[in-house]
Design a protein around this nucleic acid. Sequence first.
DNA 1: CGAGGAATTGAGTAGGTTCAAGGCCGGTGG
DNA 2: CCACCGGCCTTGAACCTACTCAATTCCTCG
Lengths: 268, 268
Amino acid sequence: MDSKRGRSPFVAKLSHFAPLSDEDVRVLDGLCRNEERLQAGAEIAAEGDVPFSFFVLMRGMAYRYRLLPEGRRQILTFLIPGDFFDLDFFLLNEMDHSVRTIVPSGLAAIDRDIVIDVILRRPRIGAALWWSAMQENAMMRERVVTLGRRNARSKLAYILCEFVWRLRAVGMAEDDEIRLPLTQADLADTLGLTAVHVNRILQGFRRDQLITLEQRRLTLRNFEMLKTISGLTPNYLHLDNTPIKVLRYFDNLEADRPRFASARSEQF
Amino acid sequence: MDSKRGRSPFVAKLSHFAPLSDEDVRVLDGLCRNEERLQAGAEIAAEGDVPFSFFVLMRGMAYRYRLLPEGRRQILTFLIPGDFFDLDFFLLNEMDHSVRTIVPSGLAAIDRDIVIDVILRRPRIGAALWWSAMQENAMMRERVVTLGRRNARSKLAYILCEFVWRLRAVGMAEDDEIRLPLTQADLADTLGLTAVHVNRILQGFRRDQLITLEQRRLTLRNFEMLKTISGLTPNYLHLDNTPIKVLRYFDNLEADRPRFASARSEQF
DNA sequence: CGAGGAATTGAGTAGGTTCAAGGCCGGTGG
DNA sequence: CCACCGGCCTTGAACCTACTCAATTCCTCG
């Protein structure tokens, strides 16, 4: 298993948002049991598709992107192990972007009805999912700020730091070193730059002893300096400090809500 | 009242997402009864604040933004009548951005507990709020694409079209004409440009008979051409076609869930 | 009528792009 | 085991979009 303490990355991620009971963990692990393997570059969903399932990425890496006329591409977000997509989809008529794997990946598809059932019956899990979606919103806000008002150096410092933070959160970083299976063109399409310019900036980072990046392995040699260059608000990922009030809220939910005892509940 | 058919803009907006019963409408109107007036440029919330309430913008206009070192600013989104902010906030520890009015505005503050109560008791309203949050996510994705991969002309065409679409949806557009109380600097800080360059692009639009913009009134004289220039996917706002499955889902919720009969419910 | 913010215009500059060519590296097939 | 191939990285040079700085005019509002 890829993640720390032997837990699945999905559990690892959701645990950051709400304290899960052993039973919650059991349910989550049960949901992700049937893991589908995909090769690198496989299309998971395409713009225009009708979303049909809820997915959890268990292994590997994927990205959400939009293709523009003239062949331009904008990458929206990267999915790392433990990430799911997308709570949104299952209410939308039609995907407004596509999703594709970067490396060989494992994907757990969960039926929409089951997701709803779990959310209703296990408020802590629902809370964690909700919170996770909010964290994603916060990341999108940061992305907008970066694209709008930071230069190429800041953009790259930002994305590299973000990757390390995120992979740490699911136990997939060794200190300041991660596996980063992206091409410079991928980074460019994420940050609104060209591959050529990404290359030059990375050269600069290497010259300044800020990073090493070779064989798809990234090491931040000077995390502090990179953070400074990026201009990031340090806590933007909201990964820490679950507010007490949230827990109280969801405990209330558990208290108010009757236990369901339908036949369906037996599968958990 | 600002909006079509005499309904509050909040009701007008949520009606796009889920068919609301008369009782739902009554509840929503009740929530927004105490409307606080704010002058132009008033700070509603500041970065670092602990979010304390749920707000609905009833009149006027506001924007969410981040300030960067060296005095740069990135505007994240604009709030128009009917918009609320933020379902997210009430779970987060700390605001990661600020909110400020642009013109004199009316704001209805709703206690967090009441919001939760309403969501639990009136699933259609909960659904509409949820959906609305998803639409906002979709808008953020479009923003990222625009900032990352479109040039200044496309960016401006995009933001002008978006404003017209959004204001139409709450009945505040006359054909292709709207009130747009933004300075060129505001537009620049939204699109990752400078005010000077925004000015020049707008000059070009005027020369090409695409728009008129004076006295804070915008008219799109050639909507089709602007859409083409913007390169937007036409349906990205997801304002139409509530999928059947969504309604079914929330009807199930109503059926499963017991009616609450607490004292609190009397206030609706 | 005066003041301050906003819009406009010009000139020079810079950050990032475009185009093009060459080198590296890992994988594949003979 | 080697040669070839394709994708990716790297580098150079010219170019261009958008920025910066600065001055002027226009509006709006008190």
